[in-house]
């Protein structure tokens, strides 16, 4: 079977995107091929704008159109409160709840020696710098309650507590082994047999 080269390249590129498999990439490419040129150009410029019009906030590393993001430059928000999250997408999640009115700090990851991620690869230095210029009273560690998130929270708590600031942590959750491959890898094998949901 021969596939025209431009189509082949489009499929290759699309299948590099997260959670897009080969079949989905094919469907997307065919769909785009059939679409109006207008629609394709709109999509193209939307993607391009992600790179040209957006950057990371100088202070909190949230996604922003300016040097400072909308949250950092908003005087109505409580800037004595910093919620530390793993990724910019977590900011969106917390914002959707409409319950939080403080500011944020995005670490851009969590500690993971297995993947070679140490404190120097995260925006931790920048977080500590903020204590010099801002009047911070409380840090809320809202990292994912998984193994790496918890270790990172413990690391940050040890760094921040000596600064005389209140540090709080969200409640721990339970990572539960999901799919077939995962259970094999964890060698818990039949361990998950018949477990009950609490």
């Amino acid at each position: 079977m021969q596939i025209a080269e431009p189509l082949q390249i489009a499929i290759e590129e699309l299948s590099k995107l997260p959670s897009i498999g080969r079949k989905t990439a094919q469907r997307l490419a065919i769909h785009l091929l059939k679409s109006d040129i207008d629609a394709v150009e709109k999509l193209l410029s939307a993607i391009q704008n992600l790179k040209t019009k957006l950057r990371f906030c100088n202070r909190c590393f949230n996604i922003s159109t300016e040097d400072l993001c909308d949250i950092c430059s908003n005087h109505k928000r409580d800037h004595s409160l910093i919620c530390v999250v793993e990724e910019a997408s977590d900011v969106i999640a917390v914002e959707k709840s409409n319950e939080y009115h403080g500011s944020y700090h995005v670490l851009a990851g969590v500690l993971s020696p297995l993947s070679g991620v140490g404190p120097e690869s995260l925006h931790i230095k920048e977080l500590l710098k903020r204590f010099e210029t801002e009047e911070i009273q409380e840090i809320i560690l809202a990292l994912n309650p998984d193994t790496e998130g918890e270790a990172t929270s413990l690391y940050l708590a040890k760094l921040i507590k000596p600064l005389g600031v209140k540090v709080s942590r969200i409640a721990r959750g339970l990572p539960i082994g999901g799919d077939l491959e995962f259970a094999d890898e964890a060698t818990i094998g039949r361990a998950v047999l018949g477990r009950i949901t609490l």
């Binding site: 082994g177 818990i188 009950i196």
Partner: peptide
């Protein structure tokens, strides 16, 4: 683990 999802986690 079969009896307690919390323990498995």
């Amino acid at each position: 683990c079969q009896a307690s999802a919390a323990y498995l986690g």
